[in-house]
Write a protein that binds this DNA or RNA. Sequence first.
DNA 1: CGTCGTTGTAATCATCCGATTACCTATTCG
DNA 2: CGAATAGGTAATCGGATGATTACAACGACG
Lengths: 212, 212
Amino acid sequence: MSSVTEKKTRMPSDERRELVLAAATTVFGDTGYAGTTTDAVARASGVSQPYVVRMFGTKEQLFLEVLHRALDKLDTAFRAAIAGDPEVGIERRLGLAYFELTADRGILLCLMHAFALGADPVIGTAARCGFMDVYRLLRDESGMSGQQAADFLAGGMLANVVLGLRLFDDYDTEPAVQELLGTVFPEKLDIIRRSHPPLTPSGPSRTAAPGR
Amino acid sequence: MSSVTEKKTRMPSDERRELVLAAATTVFGDTGYAGTTTDAVARASGVSQPYVVRMFGTKEQLFLEVLHRALDKLDTAFRAAIAGDPEVGIERRLGLAYFELTADRGILLCLMHAFALGADPVIGTAARCGFMDVYRLLRDESGMSGQQAADFLAGGMLANVVLGLRLFDDYDTEPAVQELLGTVFPEKLDIIRRSHPPLTPSGPSRTAAPGR
DNA sequence: CGTCGTTGTAATCATCCGATTACCTATTCG
DNA sequence: CGAATAGGTAATCGGATGATTACAACGACG
């Protein structure tokens, strides 16, 4: 079995940690917090299940790190947009920043899953704080009014739902889906579409790793 | 132990079934599909765990029934709003209908959970169909344009997130929360607030039932 | 009354899954 | 080199959980 990426030398642990976090983001995004097993994260990362647990201590803490990472990326993207070219309207700048985030489904889907778990004492608290931080960022540093910020957030939430529902999978067969997606993503629709290929029954094959 | 609702006579099974569905809606809303156990649903319903399974066959089928019930209530409420007083603008009529639905957190939260599970072959399919049915209803039978319908949906999604996050719990302590909620729920804010009391650490005590 | 379908439960099973333990291997440092 | 530390896995455990089975209580009907 000669994989192309076969390595004799060991990967630095920081790098491996980030790799696991990225894989965990994808898996948690697809199956939610309670619905994903640490083993699934391990397989998606190419490491063993006990190692995932030992790296993060707990599945809950792993999810919290995934959540913080996602919120960080959102924060970074929005701040860059706010500091961007003032010739372009702020809403469009933010919208384009959001579009770039959709390239990684997991980031936005993990946020949605967290936003639906407000009743959880730990995850809910973190999610509330993160959400309000985003709102405050939009309202206080983008020059938007509270109403504008809320409207922008609302559009983002609809976009998240569209991603979570995998509506793109029905784009070709459902006219109403085409119309809706056209208004939710008025720009770059074809690009987003290409980065969200339909889910084949067997799933888009990632690198296979032996089971538990 | 003389409970007030102590009954000698047996409850009709249709009624009991609806009771279990309502309880399941609340529990699934709080902890999501994968995160809730059939035992939790049973305890919230006051019946035994095996009975819940036997009534619905499978946890998955139970959730599907909960989902359909929620979509039905949404459909019914929106159709009533569409047929309502034309003196009032359609958006306000629909908004008020949505407000009434918030009285039962579970309905909207179950929808959100389902909307985030698009990758699930069974639940995802049902969720996509239900969501698009709602969109088509708004676009085709309310007189709204596709853009209006999408905007209304976006506002609804933000409202759902606000409910899922339990932002009302922080209303008194966070000024930004007050401002945001004021713009998300421009009407009846105090009424919604009263129907969404903060979650005490031990949880708002429902009727206790013996564990498994 | 007796029997039969319906409504419901207690006990239990088989599986899954997060976590722990014990162990192995690479790398660093004296 | 040789010991020590960090990176990593195989094996396994214990509890949770969805589902099944066997059985009990109720109620209608002859």
